[in-house]
Design a protein around this nucleic acid. Structure first.
Length: 439
RNA sequence: GGAGGAGUGGCAGAGUGGUCGAUUGCGCCGGUCUUGAAAACCGGUGGGCCCGCAAGGGUCCCGUGAGUUCGAAUCUCACCUCCUCCGCCA
């Protein structure tokens, strides 16, 4: 959601945002302006009328009290007047409500204005690589000389079972078993510990949330098709960013310092419209587990940038500890989505793709979500006064399984078909340092 | 799932048709007093929207939404949430 004042004062900037982001359209901006104008006009008239109505109502009350149940021509006349006001006020209220509903509905579709320093572009092909990293001892490998992809390796070692996964749950389903399952949770636990050390509060949150949370975080209404919705109208989240960012919704916070949150949760995505894309393997699945970071802080652009860099650095530290080659890209405007101000993707090297695959996505949303979530804080001003402002929010993946397992399995494979467990994960692996076929 | 009860400001808790956006206490902020602090005393203390350069004015908000009424925190209906008891259950 945008600041209404901004749209009124600079509609051109919002129209430009619809263009570079490829979200909504300039016509939507004009439609909002018109609805907003109608809304305000109706309210001004309705408020004035209601004010008169109240005065007459008060007179009726006073008169009735003195008359104690009786009536006079004066009272009759006042009641007639009051009834006339009532009808008119109802009409204006309806007019106002209709315009309000329309304006609100359009508002939910409008894009936030992206940071002008971020790349402008159409889609992910226009993203700009900011940096690339690889441990010199663990460079990106290619699938040649007998090296295998994670599907083949996983099946051979019996740590991945796609056939039975599909039997249990349909397409894009999988089972991770044995040492693979240990590796799976080891990665997640390592990421959690890493964030705990960096001062992030661990949260266990609902993954089945209200529609309000989905709208509030900006996933609805645009992304309805991507979500599983239950017969109770609750929604299975595609990321714990949704419950984390919504956690303080409808509240006014005292924000002495940024609120740093992290949650491990299962995530669900329908992947509607992705039919035929990345069908094999662990890359694009309906259910996965992810450790997510969310930061809530004051409306301050400089701090926002610092925190955005922080959450990306947190994730890079995890990948570096795992010695996985990756690169960080600035997402161009066309690839960043409706609410983002800045966005980085981290892509990890995946030999089977012979390229980098997206494993992390870190966004800075300024007040886009907090306006939708009605999440504010009290800013102390000079002279002891306070002002409520909308918070700024950020989020980034810390690690997501099974997707990152593609990189781990393929990068850490040995010539004999075994997989070496990354050193930082061995404390979580019950003494297993190498995954071999055991079943 | 069945039967009852309840949702009021940061918290506690009054208020059952008008002068109530709401008594009071606690908390919080400012001040007086004090070497300093505490105590005591004095004052202040919610949010949204609309009009306005501003000062200020108007309007809405007592779980949510509809309704009754000239007028609703107060009456009616629906929904949501919480509590108690019973049943079932990881």
């Amino acid at each position: 959601m945008l600041d209404p004042k901004l749209i009124r004062e600079n509609p051109q900037a919002v129209k430009e945002a619809t263009r570079v982001k490829r979200v909504a359209s300039p016509e939507k901006v004009d439609a909002w302006l018109a609805a907003d104008q109608r809304r305000r006009s109706a309210q001004t008239r309705a408020d004035a009328l209601k004010s008169e109505q109240k005065k007459v109502g008060d007179q009726v009350g006073q008169l009735k009290r003195t008359l104690k149940g009786g009536t006079t021509p004066e009272l009759e006349k006042l009641l007639e007047q009051a009834n006339a006001f009532k009808t008119q006020a109802q009409q204006l209220a309806d007019e106002q409500a209709a315009a309000e509903t329309e304006a609100a509905s359009i508002m939910l579709q409008l894009p936030a204005i992206p940071d002008p320093t971020w790349p402008i572009g159409k889609d992910d092909a226009d993203n700009v690589v900011a940096r690339t990293w690889a441990d010199p001892a663990h460079p990106p490998i290619k699938l040649e000389g007998g090296k295998k992809d994670h599907v083949t390796l996983g099946k051979e070692l019996n740590i991945l079972d796609f056939d039975r996964g599909v039997k249990l749950a349909g397409s894009r389903s999988y089972v991770v078993r044995g040492a693979g399952a240990l590796l799976y949770s080891a990665v997640l636990r390592f990421a959690q510990d890493s964030l705990i050390r960096r001062g992030y509060e661990q949260m266990i949150v609902p993954v089945l949330v209200t529609e309000q949370c989905m709208v509030g975080t900006g996933y609805f209404p645009a992304g309805r098709e991507q979500a599983y919705i239950t017969q109770d109208n609750t929604v299975l989240v595609g990321t714990s960013e949704v419950p984390l960012a919504s956690f303080y919704g409808n509240e006014i916070l005292d924000l002495d310092k940024p609120i740093r949150l992290a949650a491990l949760s299962t995530c669900f995505r329908r992947e509607a419209g992705a039919a035929g894309k990345d069908t094999a393997g662990l890359y694009r699945v309906h259910q996965f587990d992810k450790v997510e970071q969310v930061v809530i802080h004051k409306a301050d652009d400089a701090e926002h940038i610092t925190l955005h860099e922080e959450i990306v650095a947190n994730s890079e530290a995890i990948l570096q500890a795992l010695k996985l080659p990756y690169r960080v890209s600035k997402n161009c405007t066309g690839d960043m989505g409706q609410g983002k101000w800045r966005m980085y993707d981290i892509e990890t090297w995946m030999p089977s793709r012979n390229g980098y695959g997206e494993t992390h996505s870190g966004s800075a949303l300024r007040d886009f979500q907090s306006r939708r979530l009605n999440m504010r804080y009290r800013e102390k001003l000079e002279g002891g006064k306070t002002e409520t402002r909308y918070c700024y929010t950020l989020n980034n993946t810390a690690i997501a399984c099974p997707r990152v397992l593609i990189a781990i399995i393929e990068q850490y494979q040995n010539d004999d078909g075994t997989i070496t467990v990354p050193e930082v994960l061995t404390p979580y692996m019950q003494g297993i340092e190498q995954i071999t076929k055991t079943i």
